[in-house]
């Protein structure tokens, strides 16, 4: 799942392997130089002292000879140390790549062993934190939505007993829906932030999905039939969030286009809104980001666009906000075909 396959992946792992062997050689050389160098220095000092303090029995060649013997003897010592550091390093890297069960081999009682032990303790802590996170995700949805359900139900019962002005009632309904959506978005953002929780992957008809979401918001849709493997719910949300964002902040004229660009799929959502200043375009995708001067009342400054970015990235893609010629913005999502297909 996590590892890509195909020529691209072969190339990647080949490069990674190459980088490893270079690092390994360099590490070995460093250790070797330190060991041999220190012995050489020592024997040179010994030779020097015997030279000056008159012990003529020593040949001046003796330190050189000793150094030679030592350098040969140091070979296996350096090698062993290199190997142990190498093993520790691969455990650290495995953890970094998401293998939570990765632990280092604790042997001996030198600094390397201490380091390995403290690495293992950190790994334990990370695993425990993630397990807690997963539990939280499973329960938070239930715990947060129970009171919302009661609130919604209570409001309905109340409205039957007393007369609440319709505008106020609708406002309360909307607030509850907004809270519910925020709960959903926060939980989703949290799930997407955890690479250990895998995405669903199945063939998705992107053109069909886009046509459906555009129809929902009365946006113009131009698309070529295009299929990709991904999480259909997440890809739908990506499209919906972008379209809703364009509707909300980009004026009445919204259109979407799905383009087959060879190696990748390009999705453009275009609007004729006031546009985004260049300096703010990148920050737009931060959670709860609100452009300067934008009021609370307009709503929708939540996680919408940051979720779009997370979803694009989890599918190996990117999203950017570009300035549109003639006014307005283009939100461009690029999804690589290869990584969508293999994950």
């Amino acid at each position: 799942m996590k590892r890509a396959c195909g020529p691209l992946a072969d190339d990647l792992s080949g490069r990674r392997h190459h980088r490893h062997s270079v690092l390994r050689r360099r590490l070995f050389a460093q250790i070797y130089v330190v060991v041999v160098g220190s012995v050489l220095l020592l024997s040179f000092l010994v030779g020097l002292s015997s030279h000056f303090f008159g012990d003529r029995a020593h040949s001046p060649l003796l330190p050189v000879l000793a150094a030679l013997i030592v350098s040969v003897a140091a070979w296996p010592v350096s090698r062993r140390l290199t190997r142990r550091l190498e093993r520790l390093k691969s455990a650290v890297e495995a953890l970094g790549e998401g293998d939570l069960a990765a632990r280092a081999d604790v042997r001996g009682n030198d600094e390397v062993a201490t380091l390995a032990a403290s690495f293992n303790r950190s790994a334990e802590r990370i695993a425990a934190l993630l397990a807690g996170h997963r539990r939280l995700l499973a329960n938070a949805s239930h715990e947060l939505r129970s009171p919302l359900t009661r609130l919604r139900m209570g409001l309905e019962l109340l409205a039957e007993k007393v007369t609440i002005p319709d505008a106020q009632k609708q406002g309360l309904y909307r607030d509850i829906r907004e809270l519910d959506q925020l709960v959903e978005e926060i939980l989703l953002a949290s799930r997407l932030d955890t690479p250990e929780l895998p995405l669903e992957r199945q063939p998705v008809d992107l053109a069909g999905l886009l046509a459906e979401e555009c129809a929902r918001l009365d946006a113009e849709c131009i698309a070529v039939p295009l299929e990709a493997a991904g999480d259909p719910r997440l890809l739908r949300r990506l499209m919906r969030n972008l379209l809703e964002n364009a509707r909300r902040h980009g004026g009445g004229e919204v259109d979407a286009e799905l383009i087959d660009a060879g190696e990748e799929i390009v999705l453009d959502i275009r609007d004729r809104g006031p546009g985004i200043p260049a300096g703010e375009a990148a920050r737009l995708f931060e959670p709860f980001y609100r452009p300067a001067g934008a009021g609370e009342g307009r709503g929708g400054w939540g996680l919408g666009l940051s979720l779009v970015r997370q979803i694009a990235e989890r599918h190996g893609g990117t999203v950017a906000c570009l300035t549109r010629a003639g006014g307005g913005s283009i939100f461009r999502v690029r999804l690589p075909k290869a990584s969508i297909q293999s994950g």
Partner: peptide, 20 residues
Amino acid sequence: IITLRGAGYVFARKQDEEMP
């Protein structure tokens, strides 16, 4: 039933729904 110009028709998977 949605028309996709130049391609055909799409029968929407999610209908009358607030959230995906």
